[in-house]
Nucleic acid binder design. Structure first.
Lengths: 186, 186
DNA sequence: ATCGTTTCTTAACAAATGTGAACGAACTTG
DNA sequence: CAAGTTCGTTCACATTTGTTAAGAAACGAT
């Protein structure tokens, strides 16, 4: 999985082996047990994490109901960049839906990496873009498609999640009641 | 309106008068007529704009239908930061819903400002955060609230927009058919 | 001001989604 | 393994939202 990470970094810019090594050396292994939080609403996000294995959910609590806004799984970065960058308290939470192994990068280590080679900012910029684009897509889906279409699109585009995320979270993510999702599945 | 802008910038960090002057001097006045585009899908966003007067809409086209994802009005910054920062082609468009006056900041001028004082990056970081937060809120609203609740929330929180954005755009933004919105208004 | 176009409203009906309740399956915990 | 809990399914019924069509109102261009 580290290969994947390095490949991803290289694809962003032409970093030297030295720089890559320094970057990788700044990561620390970290585990989150299923159900535990990586980030809680109100906290400042002090790390980004590269997921080696497992699955996490970003969510917002609305009237006591957890509404997922995104998911991330092995081979992807996770964390709340706004909070990480601006040190503002997060307005959403991130928790593990499975036991999850991370390579964690602290804000202070990111600072050092940036001092060494400012082009590493591209990592953040790229990740911001990915995350923003995926969000506005989902928003447009919610605004434009009916429940059935949203579910079909989810099935088609998020195959990896279908059997790993509980139905009721998928339902909430799609803006559907669990019973209705159950009906659609027939 | 320039006062507002300067106040906003000062609120982000303790910039010197010199730096502020340099920043303001990098802006160029620019007009967009109602219906004209500031950015079209597929283009790279080469400017940010501070809106002096007017109103613009960010939108995505879905099956020939324009789905607004956000609005911006006088006193606010506009532009597609992902595209601006990463020089990637935009996956959404921005057009004026009213004749709009901007102070425009080009990517190359932003570069110069950043050379002078790297802390100006906070402008972008802050703006990214605002925009991301407002998006995930809207997403959660679409997923969680029914049409009536979404409309009521919009009426309450977006008073400035209610009478300036055409109904059918408000409807599309809220994920409702125009006829249904009309019914709700009674 | 007039004509043509676009936007908004209304209504009847159809379709989709929510609600509440019940039940069994699957998963935890002791 | 047993008991308790959570999760997923099903159903009947209520409510919301979409659809189609028509006309009224507002807007723009000549």
């Amino acid at each position: 999985m580290l290969d994947t990470l390095i490949k991803k970094i290289r694809s962003l810019d032409n970093f030297s082996q030295n720089e890559i090594d320094f970057f990788v050396g700044s990561l620390e292994p970290f585990q989150i047990a299923k159900g535990e939080h990586f980030l809680k609403e109100g906290q400042v996000c002090r790390h980004l994490g590269f997921i080696e294995s497992g699955l996490v959910m970003y969510y917002r609590v609305y009237d006591g109901v957890e509404i997922p806004t995104d998911f991330a799984l092995e081979g992807e970065w996770m964390g709340y960049l706004n909070s990480f960058t601006n040190k503002t308290s997060a307005d959403l939470s991130i928790k593990a839906l499975e036991d999850t192994n991370l390579l964690r990068l602290s804000a202070s280590n990111f600072e050092k990496i940036y001092q060494l080679q400012p082009r590493f900012i591209k990592l953040k910029d790229h990740y911001t873009e990915m995350s923003f684009v995926s969000h506005t897509r989902h928003t447009a889906d919610l605004a434009m498609l009916n429940a059935k279409q949203r579910y079909e699109k989810f099935m088609k585009e998020k195959k990896e999640l279908v059997n790993r995320v509980p139905q009721y979270y998928i339902a909430a993510y799609l803006g559907i009641k669990p019973q209705s999702l159950s009906r659609l599945r027939k």
